[in-house]
Every structure is written in C-alpha cells, then in structure tokens.
Design a protein around this nucleic acid. Structure first.
Length: 295
DNA sequence: TCGCAGGTGGTCG
DNA sequence: CGACCACCTGCG
C-alpha cells in the first residue's frame, strides 16, 4: 500500500548481467536449504530468492519450479566456471535426494511427514573453517544472534569479497587473523564467553592445521559433541553425523517417544535406524519440528 | 523480571 | 562416568 502521495521508490537490488541457469534441478527448495539451520550467511529477499556469500563468492539464487518434480535454478553473478567449481558441489546437486528420502521414509511415518515437509532440503558443502567458527558461535545461542555475530566478525576482521546489491560483502576472518586478536579486540562482536573458544580454536588451527577427524575436532576448545557433529556433517561431508540439540531432543521425545534427557539413547536410535543417512534424517526432522513450532 | 537459546567445560559424588 | 551448574548476551 502506498501512503499519501509519496511515491516510494520500490526496493530494488543491483545485480549483475552474468547469470548461470541450471535446468532440471530436483528435490530443491531454497527456503528448505537455507532455513534448516545448517548455514548463517544467506539472506532471503522479498522475491523468495536468496543472496549470500560462500567460498569468497557473492551470488543471488532463485528457483522456479516448472513441473511437479523439477525446476530451474538461476544464479546471478555467477559464471559457468563458478557454477561447476563452486555452486554445483556447494549445493550438493549431484546427489539423488529422491533416493535418500525414499529410503528414510520407508517404514517410518514420522520421517515420511518430515521429508514431505522439507522435501527440498540439501546438505551444503561448506568451508570447514567457516563451519567450525559458525557452530562454536551457535552454542547456547539464538539463530538471529548467531547470524549477527558472524556478520559482525566478518565486517570487522574479514576481507572484503566484493560489492553486490549495493554493499560490500566480507568473508569470515581466517584462523590466522583471529589467532592474532585478543579478547578485548573481539569484545565488540559480543560473542560472550564464546570469544575465548574462538581464539583458542584459531590458535590450535594455526598451530596444527585444520582438523581431519572427529577426535581432532573434539580436542578444540568450544567443540563438544553437538558442535562436532554439526561440523562433521556440514563441513566435512560425514553424513552419518547426527547432531542432537534441543530441537532434536524434542523431536525424538515427542515423535519417537524417547526420554528427552537421554542424548545417548537418541544417538543410538539414529545410528540404528538412520545409519549412514543420519545427517539427512537430522535435517528433515530439525526443519519439521521447527516448522511445527512456528505455527 | 526471568528463562531460554541449535552447549561446553569444570567440578563434584 | 554421570549429574549438576556457571556462563555472555539479547529477546519475549
């Protein structure tokens, strides 16, 4: 609704002419992908598209379903080379999610509903360091504040990656940069007690390199079982990882009848029933319980 | 105001 | 081991 006589300029975003169009993309929904809790740097636009930064590249993505089962993905500010080298693997486009969903749904009515609810979820292949940083920050924290912290950290200490939609976008700061900072330097980011975990982990990574295994991950300060599982799943492509957080505890209690406090039992249940697909199962269930909660 | 949020690490028994 | 419990911060 326009008010009075004011001709409010319509909000428009400055995008680029370079665009890549991928046809015949299945099992894909941007809301499902970017709102299932795996990433924190994508912003929804009023047209349903998403703009974000990953691997030093800034793009806008929109998806147009053209039949019941397939659709077109349009990536703005993206060359064919970037699509092949970055976004195709990032979006996990070469995996058959239809097969995964069918396998998980079989004999499990709860999972069947969860899969239908989040049918377009895909597990992103994210940068390992960014994933470590993000999920240390995520602990005992609200999602909007997590996003704010990561953004502020990037603007203050990250490298500019380019200008897009009329503003400068920044990469998350690397471990070398963070390892050189003090808690006083980080105070402005409002990370709270997590700032010492970030500094400790950055120093460990500078000293020992990025973690390669679950054991090396668990040795990092601020990385417990839940955060480690998220990093394994989202940053290391370990698809049997099954992060159990407060939401997953709710699902396992309310929908599978397990003791809400017994995280061990939940992990056991996941490995027994979901096995190598535990990570996918977790994402469908997480998105499902969150969408139930919002209503 | 107070509890809680995609938990972790430390300290008990 | 397993069960507490403090912990930065911002929001409802």
């Amino acid at each position: 609704m326009s008010k009075g006589t004011g001709m409010k300029p319509k909000l428009e975003y400055e995008r680029t002419a370079v665009e890549y169009i991928a046809e015949n993309i299945r099992d894909f929904d941007l809301d499902h992908i970017f709102d299932c809790g795996q990433c924190f740097r994508w912003e929804r636009r009023p047209d349903g598209s998403y703009t974000g930064i990953a691997k030093g590249k800034i793009v806008n993505m929109r998806y147009v379903p053209n039949e019941a089962e397939t659709g077109t993905l349009i990536i703005n500010n993206c060359t064919e080379e970037d699509y092949q080298n970055i976004w195709r693997p990032y979006l996990d486009l070469d995996r058959d999610y239809g097969k995964i969903k069918a396998k998980l749904s079989k004999g499990d009515p709860v999972m069947k509903r969860a899969v239908e609810n989040g049918s377009g979820i895909r597990i992103l292949h994210q940068d390992l360091w960014e994933t470590i940083l993000s999920f240390i920050i995520s602990q005992n924290n609200h999602i909007p504040r997590i996003k704010g912290c990561i953004e502020k950290l990037s603007v203050l200490f990250g490298q500019p990656a380019g200008t897009y939609e009329g503003r400068v976008w920044y990469d998350v700061p690397g471990p070398e940069v963070l390892a050189s900072l003090s808690e006083a330097d980080l105070a402005e980011v409002r990370l709270g007690y997590r700032s010492r975990y970030i500094l400790g982990t950055a120093k460990a990574v500078v000293r020992d390199g990025l973690p390669q295994t679950a054991e090396e991950l668990a040795a990092l300060p601020g990385v417990g079982p839940k955060v480690a599982a998220c990093i394994l799943l989202f940053g290391m492509a370990k698809y049997d990882a099954f992060p159990v957080d407060v939401w997953m505890a709710r699902v396992m209690h309310q929908l599978y009848g397990l003791d809400q406090k017994d995280r061990r039992a939940m992990a056991d249940y996941a490995s027994e029933h979901f096995g190598r697909l535990g990570g996918f199962a977790q994402q469908y269930l997480f998105y499902y319980i969150r969408s139930l909660h919002d209503k």
